[in-house]
């Protein structure tokens, strides 16, 4: 369970670039909730995810994961609760290291890293089996450097790494935005499968309204650092893109300003 209570974040306070990115967001995710997050450019989607991940401390408010107050924990200490996939396929993996080494790093997330072997032969077999389920042909390239993989392969690998140890929450930050449509669809399918298989609590940012509607059991829309729409259950299943655009204009009094979102 994730509980975010009234968090605020302002970037560059007191300067000409001051930006009130989060303006009192409260959000509670129940176990196995799959929430999609949409919103225009600069609405605070990624900021919300980064606040949860602990990229920087929030100005005020409280963040709890499974009843544990993590507000004061830096990113690397929160990592044990969270699996993350980023927008840029380069961000989630270490290019200079082998596929199996990347997986081994992820398998040790949240544990102390001592002088035991960084990877054991038993693990290698396990990773091989796991990669087979992705059908990317990576199971025979375990010792290849990750830098040699395509963007889609790297995102799929990052997804596997994020869930290798079951996280309390899976945070997906537009993780298919940099991929071509076909690859994006494959990665989304893999996401759905992994989320379902492991019963993960998930927060997925997307700029694609259709994806936001098609995936998950709940949808929230952000604008100017606030949640302006929160739809779940049956109501979400009946939702259309037109509904969303209409609701956005109704609630915010502006036109939805994300070209990509409208076009897709």
């Amino acid at each position: 369970m994730i509980k975010i209570t009234d968090i605020y974040k302002t970037f560059n306070p007191g300067t000409i670039n001051e930006k009130h990115a989060l303006n009192g967001i409260s959000l509670e995710l129940k176990d196995q909730d799959f929430v999609t997050v949409i919103g225009g450019n600069g609405a605070g989607k990624s900021t919300l995810l980064n606040a949860l991940a602990g990229t920087w401390p929030v100005d005020s408010g409280r963040i709890e994961i499974d009843g544990i107050d993590v507000t004061g924990l830096p990113e690397h200490k929160r990592a044990k609760y969270l699996g993350r996939v980023f927008q840029d396929p380069m961000t989630g993996t270490a290019a200079d290291m082998e596929i199996e080494e990347n997986l081994a790093l992820a398998a040790r997330r949240g544990r102390g890293r001592g002088l035991g072997w960084g990877i054991t032969s038993k693990e290698k077999e396990h990773y091989k089996d796991l990669l087979k389920t992705f059908d990317l042909g990576l199971e025979n390239r375990l010792t290849a450097k990750v830098g040699l993989l395509s963007g889609g392969q790297r995102q799929a690998l990052t997804l596997l790494m994020a869930t290798l140890q079951k996280p309390k929450a899976l945070l997906l930050d537009e993780h298919t935005a940099a991929l071509d449509p076909k690859t994006a669809e494959n990665v989304l399918k893999a996401t759905d499968r992994i989320v379902k298989e492991n019963g993960l609590t998930t927060l997925m940012i997307t700029h694609n309204m259709r994806d936001a509607i098609a995936h998950g059991n709940r949808l929230i829309m952000l604008n100017e650092g606030r949640i302006i729409l929160d739809i779940s259950g049956e109501e979400k299943k009946r939702l259309t893109i037109e509904d969303l655009l209409h609701k956005f204009e109704e609630v915010s009094g502006q036109e939805f300003s994300n070209d990509q979102a409208i076009l897709s």
Binding site: E75, H76, K77, A79, L82, A94
Partner: peptide
């Protein structure tokens, strides 16, 4: 090695 290769990824994997 991960820290040298990709600091952002390392933090996300819980590396100080």
């Amino acid at each position: 090695r991960a820290t040298g290769s990709n600091p952002a990824m390392s933090r996300a994997q819980g590396i100080n």
